[in-house]
Simulated assay, not measured.
Amino acid sequence: MPFLGQDWRSPGGSWTKTEHGGWKRIIMYGEHDLEDNIGEIDLKELCSDNKENLFVGDVCELATTKRKKDLYNNKTKSQFVFEDKWIYVQKGSTKERHGYCTLGEALNRLDFSSAIQDLSRFNYVAKLFQLIARSQLTSLSGAAQKNYFNILEKIVRKVLEDHYNPRLVKNLLQDLSSTLHSLAIHVGRCILVGNVNVWMCRLETIHKWQQQLNNLHIPKQVCIGMSFDDLPLHMQNKVLCNLSDAYDIINLGQATPTLHALSENRILWKNLCHFHFADKQFCRNLVLTNSATVDWKLMYFTLQKHYPIKEHYGDTLHFCKHCSILFWKECGHPCTAIDPDTCLMPISPQHFIDLFKF
């Protein structure tokens, strides 16, 4: 900021009065070469009492903190970890709070990097990242981009190591690859934050992840003791009835002839249709067989083309309408309501995106 007062001396420097009545600027030790030799100078030594207080008080502490921060950023790929796993969702400036929270800030404060280690949250985070890849990449800042791809790398690594839900992550990478290819190549100029060459390198990394997932081979585990086939038929059928994904039912039905017969059960597909779709949608898309009965399996895939299916996750983010705070329910938040449970509202991945659209 320029110095606009009548005094011509710079407010950012230290000045002393000379014998002739003028002013002379005090040049600190090594001021001209300090930036080049910062790695060789011991800040603690400069801050000592023996050096005429060259760096004193907050200045020395700020310089030391900055060096530690730069060292941390160079040696780690993760963002700063917050102790509180919640964020205040603010969409405008008020007298109490200035500014607003962004999508990138939410990714960091809610600690999605640790959330993917929990199987009940993994599908939720992967679906959220898929929606971000489809529509919100251009709104991410540089720090948010770095955090996004660092978490995405951990997601891919978990699938390769634990073989957990590779189909969902394949769809995520496919959508991300299509979006980047369209924005960075077909548009003619990169509208993403950052250098276009950086995004091209990220696109190559995504293709490498896709090849690794395509080459993923899940070894057959030798079961010692009772297996799934040893369960009674009614228990196997109950397991299939608790699955909410049609592709999981089809894949499980390919394991054995018995499971294939259970996966073709009309009641199973009827319950699945009623779980995902409303009754009014059935009347518009009736699928009848030759015997005038409803083919519920074909009905499901017909409805899926026209209507979105119901999302079902083991654990989701929750929003407190009283405090305007977004948080993981297991982690909690400092709620001031008399009955906090009545203020909670589960947040779907799409609703999460909508919260940060301004």
Rank of each mutant, 00 (worst) to 15 (best):
C60V: 01
I267G: 12
W15R: 09
H181R: 00
H186G: 02
D230G: 10
Y100V: 12
Q90M: 05
L286Q: 13
W296H: 12
R157V: 08
N147M: 04
Y124V: 04
C343T: 15
A278T: 14
R266M: 11
V169S: 01
Q6S: 13
S10I: 10
N195P: 05
C273M: 08
W269I: 12
G104F: 08
Y313P: 10
T293Y: 09
P308D: 14
K66A: 13
H234F: 03
A106Q: 00
G99C: 01
L240G: 05
L46P: 01
P2A: 06
I267F: 02
H333D: 01
D354F: 11
T289A: 10
R121S: 14
Y247P: 10
I26N: 11
M1L: 11
K44L: 13
C241G: 03
M28A: 07
Y300K: 01
I338K: 13
V125Y: 07
F275M: 00
C323H: 01
L213K: 09
Y72Q: 11
K68N: 13
P2Y: 04
D111F: 06
R67K: 15
P11Q: 02
I155S: 08
N237T: 10
D84V: 04
L203I: 05
L286I: 15
N285I: 06
G5L: 00
I27M: 06
K75D: 09
I116C: 00
I267R: 12
V59L: 11
H260A: 08
Y72T: 08
T179M: 10
W8A: 09
V239D: 01
L34E: 05
S135Y: 04
P334N: 04
I353T: 08
S14H: 06
K297Q: 06
N265Y: 04
G30W: 11
K208M: 11
A184P: 00
T205R: 06
K127C: 14
I224D: 05
N237R: 14
K66Y: 15
R157K: 09
G22C: 10
I116A: 00
C201M: 09
S120Q: 12
